[in-house]
Design a binder for these strands. Structure first.
Length: 778
DNA sequence: GGCTCATATTTTTTT
DNA sequence: AATATGAGCC
């Protein structure tokens, strides 16, 4: 088998690099996934590494899964000897395996993983316990500090208390960590940290894994944090076969502790490391690359890289401006529908990207309205919904009775007469008897000899709940996760609690049923594994809409993917770059890298859009085009980069819109963009789309590309105006407020005409013809 | 203890 | 806009 066929010299060199530390610096689209998969295959087959003893760490579970499939395809065999996963899942696995030694850290192997929501509630109860104000010590800030400490491997005892703030944080951190251990729970950082601690505490365990994994491969190395780095160097301590692949220009997770300087650290610590550069791009046209390079070059302290491709030329970038996010979305759907209808592209060729998840809403609505199939990656977390979290909390308590956080969540949901006072009393009582959380309720319900501090209604309720919980715990190893969920739903009468007959209630119940479906699909797997998947695998939520649908995703989620046509939306100051990054130069550099990542996802064409007005937190505000747009060379943009002109125009328009808003009735958005109503309404439409997608899937063999549902009213080509121009330059007009002026430019935008007028007394204004009352006087 | 209404707060990105 | 928290009342 020739594993290097079709690879360029640099790629070949990487695949066949000698054992020892290797650093691959790979530009976007340089085939690094290919290099990784071939490297693994090479290790397995050519060098007879058997049993395989290879550990490969990628960024997402999805990526790991794909990589496994690819390697298996190359080798044509089952790869049980290779561990592939994320850092987090790898660590969870190791920790559960070493449960005997894990006890030394205070955990049993049934530990649960607390996500950010759980973390928040732990912090909150810690604040309460310590009598601290959650305004002064914001839970999110506290969590950031704690996470930062954990990344530096600082335990509460060693947290430096130099001033008042840090003294308080130290106390909160201490309390937080105690709570986690008491709950037999780990947060995401703990999974990594405890693995390293375990290795340091029990050298035999480390030695075992060093022996087991002779080769370690790491993808997206620029996004590792220092604990992950520590974990790698420990694991590779003996064989030093550490093969890392990264690109500092694509480092976009600094906020999560990632530090691309790990690349330099690696160089310093392994001076003998072989270093290979992959600069040839196989994905994009030269034009796309030129744009991306022009953007990234502006970042300070950066090593210049000359990306190149065989794909010279390429379609020019389309830069578009829309009135608001709804119009922006419509422009996109029309372009997509148009290209699809002409048979030039299929829906699956398009990706629409945005900075924040909240921006997906307007896009979804537009796609639903036009009947264009899409799939949403990430988005409003399915597992973040209240009703879903409730059920998960039930499972977690059944799985780990020490989980007080989850118990508190569900002990009175559905309401069963167990209020705050009773809960506190119950837990205090349990504490005296040295039983935790769920154990206490069960003891109360099952041990007739025990003296109880409760009576009457509270006691009856607790007994009933304890009996139920006991039943589930006893059944948990006998029945499947699906059956367990079903039982919990039945016995708690959850449906009548959540489905109150309103649209929203029905919607919630649908979500519960979806979770039930996921549980049933999980089949025979253990509860532990099920809960771990829920905690660590984020992509269960992806609305898998077959291959032939438009992908919507955040810029972060786009890393590692590629699409023929990419739309990047919301390119406005405050959104992209995000307002939270404005004050810090390093964060701004990261925003730029994020934009760079988005740009380099495109194979053939880029559409970049910004709006004049954007709704945020339910308020519509004027927006200014992103500074990043200005960095795209004019010759790469269709019709030239008009950003600076637009920038000025935006300022002017901001002014005139606000003026007209006071004198004119509000623009009829409901007729122009359709009215959207409440959440449930939207959920309904989304469900309808989902159902329709199912039928598309089933019909797709019978149906050709072009027969897909025809857009209802946007069958026009993308820039066909729907209004006719009323004004032309040179005309003299009169405005109610600004007096007389001369039209210098008239431009048709969608559904409107925009007129630039030079007023004798007020200077140049850009006005909307439908708004401004203009009288032609000559 | 539980429900309803009013007010505050939020959103960056994800394992 | 959508959700979380808190006060007030049954």
């Amino acid at each position: 088998m020739n594993l290097t066929a079709g690879l360029n010299p640099a790629q070949k060199e990487a695949v066949t690099a000698p054992f020892g530390p290797v650093l691959i610096l790979a530009g976007p689209g340089s085939g690094k996934t290919r290099v990784l998969t071939h490297r693994i295959a090479y290790l397995v087959s050519e060098l007879n590494v058997f049993p395989f003893r290879i550990m490969s760490v990628t960024f997402t579970n999805k990526a790991a899964k794909e990589m496994r499939a690819r390697v298996e395809k190359i080798l044509g065999e089952d790869l049980r000897g290779i561990l592939m996963g994320t850092f987090h899942s790898t660590c969870a696995r190791i920790l559960r395996r070493e449960s005997a030694d894990l006890a030394r850290l205070g955990y049993s192997k049934d530990f649960v993983i607390f996500d950010s929501d759980d973390q928040r509630s732990v912090i909150k109860s810690a604040l309460k316990e310590l009598n601290l104000d959650d305004k002064r010590f914001q839970p999110s800030k506290m969590l950031n500090s704690i996470s930062g400490a954990k990344d530096k491997m600082i335990t509460p005892d060693f947290y430096e208390a130099s001033d008042y703030m840090s003294t308080v944080i130290k106390r909160i951190y201490d309390q937080y960590q105690r709570t986690l251990v008491a709950n037999n729970a780990m947060d995401f950082d703990d999974l990594l940290l405890n693995t390293v601690r375990l290795f340091d505490l029990v050298p035999e365990v480390l030695a075992k894994y060093q022996q087991q994994y002779q080769h370690i491969l790491v993808d997206e190395f620029q996004d590792t944090n220092s604990v992950q780095y520590g974990l790698l160097t420990r694991l590779a301590g003996q064989h030093k076969n550490l093969f890392v692949v990264g690109d500092s220009d694509q480092s976009i997770y600094k906020w999560r502790g990632a530090d691309f300087r790990n690349i330099q650290k690696f160089r310093d610590e392994y001076p003998s490391a072989k270093q290979i550069l992959l600069e040839q791009n196989y994905r994009s046209t030269q034009l796309v690359l030129d744009a991306a390079m022009a953007v990234i070059e502006k970042n300070p302290e950066r090593v210049h890289k000359q990306l190149f491709t065989d794909r010279s030329g390429g379609a020019q970038i389309v830069m578009r401006e829309a009135y608001n996010e709804n119009e922006e979305a419509e422009q996109i759907v029309r372009t997509v529908a148009g290209e699809n209808r002409r048979g030039r592209r299929s829906y699956g060729d398009f990706a629409v990207m945005y900075r924040t998840n909240a921006q997906s809403r307007a896009l979804e609505e537009a796609f639903i309205r036009e009947g264009v199939p899409y799939k949403l990656i990430g988005a409003t977390k399915f597992y973040g919904r209240r009703e879903v979290r409730d059920i998960i909390a039930y499972l977690r308590v059944v799985h780990n009775l020490r989980d007080e956080v989850s118990l508190r969540r569900i002990i009175n949901v559905p309401t069963r007469g167990i209020g705050a006072k009773t809960i506190e009393k119950l837990l205090a009582w349990g504490n005296q008897l040295d039983v935790q959380a769920g154990e206490a309720v069960i003891k109360l319900a099952t041990d007739p000899t025990i003296a109880l501090p409760f009576k009457g209604r509270a006691l009856a309720s607790l007994m009933r709940f304890g009996t139920m919980l006991n039943g589930w715990v006893r059944a948990r190893d006998e029945i499947t996760v699906g059956e367990l969920v079903q039982r919990i739903l039945d016995e708690t009468n959850y449906k009548s609690y959540i489905d109150d007959g309103t649209d929203e209630g029905t919607d919630r119940w649908e979500n519960v049923k979806e979770l039930l479906g996921v549980a049933k699909d999980a089949g025979e797997i253990a509860l532990t594994e099920f809960l771990e998947n829920v905690a660590l695998v984020a992509d269960v939520d992806d609305l898998e809409g077959g291959s032939n649908s438009v992908t919507m995703l955040t810029l972060h989620a786009s890393k590692g993917l590629e699409f023929p046509v990419v739309f990047i939306t919301g390119l406005e100051e405050g959104i992209m770059p995000h307002s939270r990054s404005m004050t810090d130069a390093e964060e701004m550099a990261e925003e730029r890298r994020l934009f760079y990542v988005g740009l380099t996802r495109a194979e053939d064409q880029l559409f970049l859009s910004h709006t004049l007005r954007r709704s945020l937190y339910g308020m519509s505000e004027m927006s200014t085009p992103s500074r990043f747009l200005g960095d795209i060379p004019s010759n790469l943009v269709e019709g030239g980069n008009k950003l600076s002109e637009r920038h000025a125009a935006a300022q002017n328009r901001a002014w005139s819109w606000d003026q007209s808003a006071t004198t004119q009735p509000k623009r009829a958005t409901s007729s122009t963009y359709g009215s959207y109503g409440k959440r449930s309404d939207f959920a309904e439409k989304r469900a309808a789309q989902k159902a329709a997608r199912g039928s598309w899937e089933s019909q797709k063999s019978a149906m050709s590309q072009r027969d897909l549902p025809k857009p209802r009213h946007l069958s026009e080509d993308r820039d066909t105006p729907t209004v006719a121009a009323q004004y032309k330059s040179g005309q003299r007009v009169k405005h109610a407020k600004f007096g007389e002026g001369i039209v210098i430019e008239s431009k048709i935008t969608r559904n409107d005409e925009e007129v630039a007028i030079a007023f004798s007394e007020h200077g140049i204004k850009r006005l909307s013809a439908s708004f401004a009352k203009l009288e032609v006087i000559g």
